[in-house]
Design a protein around this nucleic acid. Structure first.
Lengths: 224, 224, 224, 224
DNA sequence: AATGAATGAGACTTCATTCAT
DNA sequence: GATGAATGAAGTCTCATTCAT
């Protein structure tokens, strides 16, 4: 429906400009140039609008993420491509990343986990299984450090990268002022470091410097 | 003033339970067991309360961060100690981290950069200069990768680690449910990876795998 | 019209579940699985629906009331049969009684007397004339107290019995909880008392007038 | 507080004129000549106002009911006095009775039983125990029919009388038009009949003919 | 006979804050 | 230093109903 789109676009804009919490329904309504009652026929409250935008954003993001990985040949390359894609998003789709950052805050407080899981389930049929597979693949093909825990590492990396990406998008200019660096460069540097950290290398005794890693004493591989 | 403390404690608790935005002055007032007019003698509005809590939190955090680095001998060790300290905070002071996460969101939108910079100036006299020095130190003593950019790397790392820490603190149980991992383990794994990424190692041609690093052509070190 | 029936059934159900006042047109519409505009082709507003249901209910009730009195032979027996019928209604048709109770409330406030009188006129052609006749009959045949005022008594009795019946139907479980008695038993006791109060004293065969006494043919004992 | 009284008076008046359901907060507010926000300091919503009025009405009614019974000497006299009191209420306090009638309707639908029981508990310490005692007393002193069931009869009678009283108060003029009798006369006639029905007369053991009595042995009494 | 879209009018609250005492 | 009372301004949502097709 045309009106639905109108509302979503207006809302998305306002949410980015003034923040989801600070945007009132009244503002969305007047920005959509509708009568209040008309608007309420399409969305019963702000949450539903947020939800609708979220679905769209996630869907698109999932599609693009998938596509970005397609060309890559080994595990590391795939992961790198994925992170690369996230950097590109930050450059080109900052508002959407900011939206996701705001969503995180709402989700943290107000929404039950199932709700998001349901949505994610609809979108990434594979979900995190694919990620886990990536790590396993990378270890097998020798492109990733062999001491990585497939169930842990990717979650840790993804969480950190998403968090960094969203934080930079949210703080935007402020971070640039504070740190004197463009957020784009900073994020790409973050990714570079992390990729280094994942990559199989010729470390002698890597494990020692690893913070508190009692359980995983990394296997050192000698080159033959 | 004892009343002041009372208000701040009540507010801090409410801010964590219900979110800063969702906490009303009325709630703070009744939780402090004061009359509205009495409260307004101490704080003119919510922002001032947030600000007061922020100062406290930052001050304490800075002190502890400083202390945590004290024993370390080389650059990498110092950085590792710093990150380590952040992991400990996540374990032991989750509510405060959540407060900082919420603050980020408010800061991103409502507060001018100078206000934070002023506060930070008061607290970290050295500010980020110290960080930059850390990286230089590490490169010099051979504990860090020589291709790191002192002005860029630490900001990138700190941003990512702070972002990851706050995200995990905010999402808490939800992340654990979604990912099936404790946030503590995840965060320590993040740090491990990043430390690996910073550490000087015997990598062959690292530059090639670096995502899109057109500008910064990392110096490749040939093994001899 | 099938649609008409559908609407009325849906409305009747909702009116009983949620109350007439609290039932919105929107609810009736969606329960009828119609589009708003379609519904408005059949009924212009809620009042018309209420009115239509009322007509049905009254019509059926009148028919059954009439039938119930048919077998009775003297005045008291007729009255008893009528009250008996009301008790049976309470047992078997609670929702309809509740509807009438709700109608009373609306009628008390919003509808002009003529409207109901018109409807009643259509249904009980005899109306209250029949009732008055009953009392006269009963006095004449010696089954009722001779000091009853035909114009007053029956109205008083009917009003009380209807009121009690509707109140019990409306309060239902609540009354049972409060009073610890089933509404059915309570209502039948009310009727018993009232019948006693109407009955001529020094009766020879009191038993005949006892409600529900089809089976029990009371043994009359002759004076010795 | 003065404002509280103002609100309650305004509300009581409006509730009677336009019905509780049809009265909007806005109306109560403007009738009280307050600002909306001021009003909401005293009552959070309509229910609370209704509840406050209800408490008052019940309290006063209980006090008066108690007083009315005081002079009576035997069981029947007490009951008669009680019913008499109800008739007087109908004559003099119609609006309050109408309020109770409206309350019944709300209570039937929206309020949990406990809420009312709590209130009643606070008011009639004796509650229904006293009523039951009245019946026992009356049977013992020979003023009431010996076949009455103390646990059942009074509830049945009270329910019917309350119901009749409230119905007449609610329908007011409409009943007078329909029935051609003043509601006052009608209600007193109702009471008269019921008192006849309760009174020990020259009936022998009429109890046997009571509905649902399986072994109905109607004994005819000896005339003296 | 049916429908999809639209809407005017208004109800119910909430909340930060002030001010006279 | 404390308090009780008051309020302006705004926000969210509901609902009966219409109208062009």
């Amino acid at each position: 429906m045309r009106q639905r789109r109108r509302i979503l676009s207006a809302a998305e804009k306002l949410f980015d400009e003034r923040g989801i919490d600070r945007t009132t329904m009244a503002e969305v309504i007047s920005a959509s140039e509708l009568r209040p009652s008309t608007m309420y026929q399409y969305f019963a409250n702000k949450d539903e609008i947020v939800w609708a935008i979220l679905s769209e954003v996630l869907e698109e993001a999932a599609a693009r993420a998938k596509k970005s990985v397609e060309g890559a040949t080994n595990g590391l390359a795939k992961i790198t491509a994925l992170l690369q894609y996230m950097a590109d998003e930050l450059s080109k789709n900052q508002p959407r990343i900011r939206f996701m950052a705001q969503f995180d805050a709402m989700y943290a407080r107000d929404w039950p986990t199932e709700r998001l899981l349901t949505l994610e389930g609809q979108i990434h049929d594979q979900g995190f299984k694919a990620f886990r597979k990536l790590i396993r693949e990378g270890i097998a093909d020798g492109s990733l450090r062999p001491d990585l825990d497939p169930d842990l590492t990717l979650h840790a990396v993804i969480n950190a990268v998403i968090a960094a990406q969203r934080r930079l998008a949210s703080l935007g200019k402020k971070v640039e002022l504070e740190y004197g660096q463009s957020i784009d460069r900073m994020f790409r540097e973050t990714i570079r470091i992390i990729v280094f950290g994942l990559r199989a290398g010729e470390h002698a005794n890597t494990a020692d410097s690893c913070p508190r890693v009692k359980a995983h004493r990394a296997t050192t591989r000698k080159r033959t």
